[in-house]
Amino acid sequence: MNMHPTTAGLLLAGILFVLGLISVLIRRNIIFMLLSVEIMLNAAGLAFVVASSHWGTADGQVMFMFILAMAAAEVSVGLALILQLYHQLRTLDSDEANRMHG
């Protein structure tokens, strides 16, 4: 295959991002939705690393480290929110949580 490395890497990142987006749209289990957000964040980080290797600078890798830290914080808060939802509704279906109780 004679494809430019940046093109190939960005294609892979795009495919992974779209897979995560499809999953977050079609799944109703809220843990699966959190996993899909992780897939999308990971794809964005991969795009940053590919861009970093394209330009030969370290900026993209610095952004990748920030994405890693943000993903860690997001997962901890998201899991705590899912725990609260599970304690209140006894289910992981996100459609059950479509009403607000004032």
Partner: peptide
């Protein structure tokens, strides 16, 4: 980012 991680810890503790 350090402040974000701190907020994440406090938020996870408060929610959990």
């Amino acid at each position: 980012t350090g402040i974000l991680l701190m907020a994440g810890i406090v938020g996870a503790y408060h929610l959990g």
